[in-house]
Structures are given as C-alpha cells and as structure tokens.
Amino acid sequence: MDPHIFLIQLLNGVQYGLLLFLVASGLTLIFGIMGVINLAHGSFYMLGAYLAWSLTAQLGNFWLALLSGFVLSVVLGMLLEWLFIRHLYRRDHLQQVLLTYGLILIFSELRSIVWGDDVHSVAVPALLAGSIPLTETLAYPVYRIWLSIICVVLAAGMYYLIQHTRLGMMIRAGASNREMTQSLGIDIGLLYRLVFAFGIALAAFAGMLAAPVSSVYPGMGNQVLIICFVVVVIGGIGSVKGAMAAALLIGLVDTFGKVVEFEIGGFRVLPELAGMSVFVMMAIVLLWRPEGLFGARLR
C-alpha cells in the first residue's frame, strides 16, 4: 500500500472509530455506568435520525433541528425512565432485556406509523457541505471531519463530567453502591433519571449527527446496536476512556481489515472476511483481559 493511501486509510479508521464512539457513548452511560442493558439503544439512534430528517424539513434549519431534537429526546428519556426503567434497577438483566426488546418493537412500529418505511436523507448543512481534495481522484467531506471534532469534544466533556465534577462523583457513587449513596442524602432516583435521559439523548444525538452522512432508513438502529455493545465490552464496562480506545481500535481494525490482504501460517486472509475481523479482535481482547481494556476488575 503506498504511503499516501495508507495515511488516508488511517484517517478513515480514526474517523470511523470516533463515529463509533459517538454512537456508543450513550450506551456507555446507561449500560456501563448504570448497569442497565438497553437493547433499545439502536432504536433511539434511529429515532434521532428520523427526528433530524423531519425537524429539518419543518424548521428549515439543521442546527435548530439538532437542538430541538436533543431537548425532545431528553424529555422522552425521562418519561421512559419514569414509566418503565426505574422498576428494573433491582431486577435481573433478563427482565431489562425483555423490556428494552419490547421497546425496539414499539419504536419500530411507531416509526412506521409516524414516518413510514421510506429511505430518506438529510442534506449536509451548507456551512460544511464541501470536500477537501486529498489526491487527484479523492476528496474528504468536510462534514466528516467536523463530526470527528464533535466526537472528540463530546468524549472530553463526558470524561470531565464523570471523573471531575460533583455530579459525576454522585453518578459513580450511585453506580457502585446505590443504598449507601441514597443514605447520604442524594436523590438517587432523580440522578438515575437524568443519567438515563442523557444516555438516550446521546444515542438520538448520534443519530441526528450521523443522518447527513448516513441515510435515514428503518433498519439503521439494529445495525449499530451490536457494534455499540462490542465497543462497551471491549473498552470495559463503565469506562469512558475504554470506550474511546475500543472505538478507535475497532475503527482501525475494520478499515484495514477491509482492504489489506495478508497471510498467517500459509492461510490467506482476504478482505472479504472483514465482517469477522472486529469480532475476532473482541475475542482476543476478552481472552487477554476479560474485564475489557479499561474495565474495573470483575466484581
């Protein structure tokens, strides 16, 4: 591979990894920190994309749509937590899976009723619509670069919030010992409602941001769900840092897995098998560190 192309592929890998972090960040909060298995994470991603599409059409402005979509999804998240999720904290994971799987079906049907089953797309906002030429045949879309920057800012913000603020301290305390935190006079119910709502809003936000580079279509949520869990599991439950490292690792493995042909012990590994590369990597990481890259030692 010539060095020029190698560098561009490196950029692709990092950019894809950052995008994965964005998509998985909400799950890191809800699954990683609250310990709730939210299978409907992908549904909120899809909901966000559809919100971006319909709000952009109605408000005529992508940025306004982004803002109002975010607010809407926080409200939706709080409502859902109050209605369903809060009853599940003390129950086992299987019941959480059952409930959130039900939510997938409900949201997919609601989407079909409200928005239909068509494929849509959201125009890239004019400010970021261009492409930067890299070689004589290839250019890089500005929006993707901007998206990467947003991801980095978001990651830094989350890390700061959880590790270095009072709110973050309360969240971490609640995650490690719910009863004790409550007995110290912290309203754990409200705290968890906020965290859940924020996690949901992050998933929807990711969907909204991804809408202009992706397309908006019915199955998009289910597609990101698995890779999000892979990110959180490889990174280590409860670690924002880990999720970031895992997302970048997956981005690079997936990108180079798709284009590089190599040999291991006489077996030719073909790019066609790229679909497996991420999962092979997950297996290796979990064999080496069962708690994930940055996870706490298993309780």
Binding site: I5, N12, G13, Y16, T137, L138, D254, V259, G275
Partner: peptide
C-alpha cells in the same frame, strides 16, 4: 472485487481503495 459485510454501510475505506486503484 470489493465487498462490504451485509448490511454494513461504512464505505469510506473501500472508496479510498477505489481512488487508489483508479
């Protein structure tokens, strides 16, 4: 012949490959 795992829609790596192959 370039393949994307179904139903993955991340094409960027393969688009770069196409640009390199000309």
């Amino acid at each position: 012949e370039l393949f994307v795992p179904f139903p993955n829609v991340e094409f960027q790596a393969l688009l770069t490959e196409i640009a390199a192959l000309k």
